[in-house]
C-alpha cells in the first residue's frame, strides 16, 4: 500500500496554508488526521501532487468557550474532544457520538474538522453537529472567513460548502447546557462505520420534553435532521408510548443506501427503532 509520490508542505499558520492552497490549486490536498485521506492515497484512489499538512498550525487546535458558544478548532482530535469537560458539559451529544468513532488509535489521530469536511454520510460527527446547530467557519483565499450553518454545510456524498482553496478552521456550537444526550449507533462489529446512527439531545422540563434535536447518520447522502420528530416530541412525556408515536415520521426525507449491511427499507425500519431508543435515553427514561 504505497501512495503515488507527492510533495509535502507543513505550514504553521492558516494564512500560509491558504496561500499554499492557492498556489497549488487542485493539485493540492489538505491532510488533517489522515484517517480517511491516507487510505485513499494508499489505495491510489487519489494522487495529489502536494499534500498540505495542517498538523503544525496551533490556531486550529483545541476547544475554547466564546460566550454561549463552544469553539472547536478544526484540527482538534477526537481524543481531545472526549477529554474536554467543556464539550461534555455544553455539547454532550458530540462527546457521546465521538466516543463511538472507530477505536482509540483512530480517535487519537482523526480530527473533528477532517471528519466534517470528509463528509462520509456514515460518519458519526455530522449528525450531532447538525442536531446541535453547529456553525462552520471557513477561511478563504483572500484571508476572508465566512460562517456556514451546518444545515447548509453538507451538500452531498463527500461534498461540503468548503470550496477549492478553502479551509475549515472552526466549529462553533451553541451551548446545550443541561441537555440530555444520546448517540445510538447501530453496527455489526465494533470498529465499523454506522449502518444507521441517531443523535438525539433533549431538554426536559417538569417530566416532559421541552425541546429536542435529532440528527440521523447514514440515512441519506448527507447527515439529516429529523425536524418533524423534533417538533412532535415537544411537550411529550418521555414514555415509550409517547416517543414511539412522535418518532413515526422519522423517515420523512430519508433516502438510505442499500449495501451488505442492510437494504434501504431495513435501514428505515432501524431508524424508527433507534430514534425512539436514542430519544428515551437522552431524556433519561
Amino acid at each position: 500500500m504505497i501512495p503515488a509520490q507527492f510533495d509535502y508542505l507543513a505550514p504553521t499558520s492558516v494564512a500560509d496554508a491558504v496561500a499554499a492552497l492557492a498556489e497549488h490549486g487542485d493539485e493540492a490536498k489538505v491532510l488533517a488526521g489522515g484517517q480517511s485521506l491516507l487510505p485513499i492515497l494508499r489505495m491510489r484512489l487519489n494522487a495529489p501532487g502536494v499534500v498540505i499538512d495542517l498538523g503544525r498550525i496551533p490556531e486550529l487546535q483545541g476547544v475554547s468557550e466564546d460566550g454561549d458558544h463552544l469553539v472547536i478548532g478544526a484540527m482538534t482530535t477526537y481524543a481531545a474532544v472526549l477529554a474536554s469537560e467543556a464539550v461534555t458539559t455544553h455539547a454532550a451529544l458530540l462527546s457521546k457520538a465521538i466516543a463511538t468513532v472507530a477505536d482509540p488509535q483512530i480517535r487519537h489521530r482523526g480530527t473533528v474538522g477532517g471528519a466534517l469536511v470528509h463528509a462520509d454520510p456514515a460518519g458519526d460527527v455530522g449528525a450531532p453537529a447538525l442536531a446541535l446547530g453547529a456553525e462552520l467557519v471557513i477561511a478563504g483565499a483572500d484571508g476572508s472567513t465566512r460562517t456556514v450553518a451546518a444545515e447548509d454545510f453538507f451538500e452531498d456524498l463527500f461534498a461540503t460548502a468548503v470550496g477549492e482553496g478553502e479551509l475549515l478552521t472552526q466549529i462553533r456550537i451553541p451551548k446545550h447546557t443541561g441537555w440530555g444526550a444520546h448517540y445510538e449507533k447501530f453496527v455489526r462489529v465494533s470498529h465499523q462505520w454506522s449502518i444507521v446512527g441517531v443523535a438525539a439531545t433533549v431538554r426536559s422540563e417538569g417530566g416532559s420534553i421541552a425541546e429536542a434535536r435529532v440528527g440521523l447518520t447514514n440515512m441519506g447522502s448527507t447527515p439529516l435532521r429529523a425536524r418533524s420528530v423534533e417538533e412532535a416530541l415537544v411537550g411529550q412525556p418521555a414514555t415509550d408510548e409517547a416517543v414511539r408515536a412522535a418518532v413515526a415520521s422519522v423517515n420523512d426525507g430519508t433516502n438510505p443506501p442499500s449495501d451488505l449491511n442492510g437494504d434501504s427499507d431495513y435501514r428505515k425500519h432501524l431508524a424508527t427503532v433507534l430514534t425512539r431508543r436514542a430519544v428515551l435515553a437522552a431524556a433519561g427514561a
Binding site: D103, R188, V189, S190
Partner: peptide, 28 residues
C-alpha cells in the same frame, strides 16, 4: 455472525478491504 466474501455481478470482490470484510476484534 460476521464474515462473508461477496462478489458483485461483474465478479469484483466487494468485500475487498477490512471495511467490508468485517472481521471481529476482541471488542466483539
Amino acid at each position: 455472525l460476521w464474515e462473508g466474501a461477496e462478489y458483485d455481478d461483474q465478479g469484483t470482490l466487494v468485500t475487498g478491504s477490512f471495511v467490508d470484510y468485517t472481521l471481529p476484534t476482541s471488542a466483539d
